[in-house]
Computed example of a mutant assay.
Amino acid sequence: MQAFLAGAVLLVCLSAPLIGGVQQPRLRTKRLTPEYSGGAPFAVGFGSWVMWVLVFPVVRVGFTGTRNTWICVALLVLCVLVARPMVRMVAPARLKGSRLLVAARAVGLCCVLAGVMALLDAGVGRQPMAGMTVVYATAAAVLGLMRAVDHGYFPLVLLWSALQKALLAVATGYWIDHTGGTLVPDPDDATAGALLLAVLWWSTVGLSAGCAVAAAVRLVPWLRTGPPARPAPPGVKSWPPAVGDVWTAELTHDDNNYKERPVLVLEHTPGFVRVLGITSVDKSGRRHGYLKLHLSEWEGVLKKDGWLNLEIAHIPYCDFLWRHGECPDRVWNLLCTKADVRERRAKVGPAPGFTFHHRLRSAMNKHVGHDARKVRADAGSRVRQPWTRERV
């Protein structure tokens, strides 16, 4: 009974990453809903059964003789065709159209499954249900790691997820050992149940270790230079912000207050984006530093007349929220030829939002400072309700 409960807990842990993105966007009311696929565990479960049916004869027959070799090759090709939709299911929308990447991942998944089945052939070959569950556990761990790599943008959030899985693995491992089980059974002598429980445990450990490695690889450059452009922050579809596009972003000021503002994308760098901010505050008295934007020309992009700040600002990739549209050609040509676009004024220290504690907090999906939407009212304070925007 204890072994059954431990196996159920491990199965739930392996299945959870297949259902949805591992991270939430910073502002849930402003970005799109993260990608969810509630039917993924069932689809992977069915695909695992089919893959076990295809891989098991390959492991048993082997590449012995010309006829057997062709049979095994045909079965492996069919296995890749079954693995492809599973890999595509857990991939983000921006990668679903990359046929070569999806095919390469499907081949890798089949190779891992074939290797595990070859190692456990003697134990799981006697019981089809055990063999299918072993294939499911391995496939869920590999696909869950793929999803974590694709969706795990904030490294400290991903590291915390890896730590939770590691703690679960430690607890279940102690439970299994305390009840007389073993985590390294002999495939030739162990029962199918013991092999199954061991594979579930090692799959959870592998998933946890893979998430931790991915988090560490992303955390080091994040803390050194800032959030990367890849993968895309959770909750955005159109990515990365194209040059000439208008986006809403969290623009941080020197006093650490930040506010959502439309910005015009000028240039990408490895750690941030150079933009021009747009404001609706009248700047007619400072025409040398601002460019008037007429609503008639920006229809569908802006909601009212605005002013374009000609001083370049730097914004981390993680602070972009959603896309509005494209800059009109006339304004873009004016910026490239005649407008007095200038660099940010030299000041002591890095640009706002780029000090170490800014980068550290952003790696946790947090923000240093105060939201400028918060305003004082009499003795207390109130927060202006953020409006939602469904379209991107």
Score class of each variant (00 low, 15 high):
residue 15 S to Y: 06
residue 114 A to R: 04
residue 154 F to T: 02
residue 129 M to A: 15
residue 345 R to S: 13
residue 298 W to F: 04
residue 49 W to K: 08
residue 202 W to S: 05
residue 22 V to N: 05
residue 260 E to Q: 11
residue 295 L to A: 05
residue 213 V to Y: 06
residue 139 A to N: 00
residue 250 E to I: 08
residue 279 T to I: 01
residue 36 Y to C: 13
residue 335 L to I: 03
residue 132 M to N: 10
residue 217 V to Q: 10
residue 309 N to G: 05
residue 171 A to I: 14
residue 46 F to G: 14
residue 332 W to P: 04
residue 325 G to Q: 02
residue 22 V to H: 09
residue 220 V to Y: 06
residue 86 M to W: 09
residue 14 L to K: 04
residue 132 M to D: 04
residue 254 D to N: 09
residue 66 T to K: 12
residue 120 L to P: 03
residue 188 D to Q: 15
residue 57 P to F: 14
residue 386 P to F: 04
residue 333 N to D: 15
residue 102 V to R: 05
residue 345 R to C: 06
residue 355 T to M: 09
residue 125 G to E: 02
residue 260 E to L: 12
residue 101 L to N: 02
residue 237 K to C: 14
residue 73 V to G: 07
residue 52 W to L: 12
residue 292 K to D: 09
residue 33 T to A: 11
residue 182 T to M: 09
residue 254 D to K: 13
residue 353 G to L: 02
residue 61 V to E: 08
residue 341 V to L: 03
residue 289 G to Q: 02
residue 86 M to I: 13
residue 372 A to N: 12
residue 215 A to R: 08
residue 94 R to S: 12
residue 274 R to T: 10
residue 46 F to K: 13
residue 364 M to H: 11
residue 86 M to T: 14
residue 30 K to E: 13
residue 76 L to T: 15
residue 316 P to L: 03
residue 315 I to G: 03
residue 113 L to W: 02
residue 308 L to D: 00
residue 1 M to C: 09
residue 37 S to N: 10
residue 202 W to G: 00
residue 175 W to E: 04
residue 363 A to V: 00
residue 119 L to I: 14
residue 300 G to P: 01
residue 350 P to A: 14
residue 26 R to W: 13
residue 347 K to V: 13
residue 158 L to K: 03
residue 306 G to V: 00
residue 321 L to S: 07
residue 347 K to E: 11
residue 159 L to D: 00
residue 13 C to G: 10
residue 27 L to S: 11
residue 311 E to S: 08
residue 227 P to V: 10
residue 391 R to W: 08
residue 140 A to Q: 02
residue 320 F to D: 03
residue 347 K to C: 12
residue 267 E to R: 03
residue 202 W to E: 03
residue 161 S to H: 13
residue 367 H to A: 14
residue 292 K to N: 07
residue 4 F to M: 15
residue 110 C to Y: 01
residue 261 R to P: 00
residue 66 T to S: 08
residue 183 L to A: 06
residue 325 G to C: 10
residue 31 R to P: 05
residue 375 V to H: 10
residue 392 V to R: 07
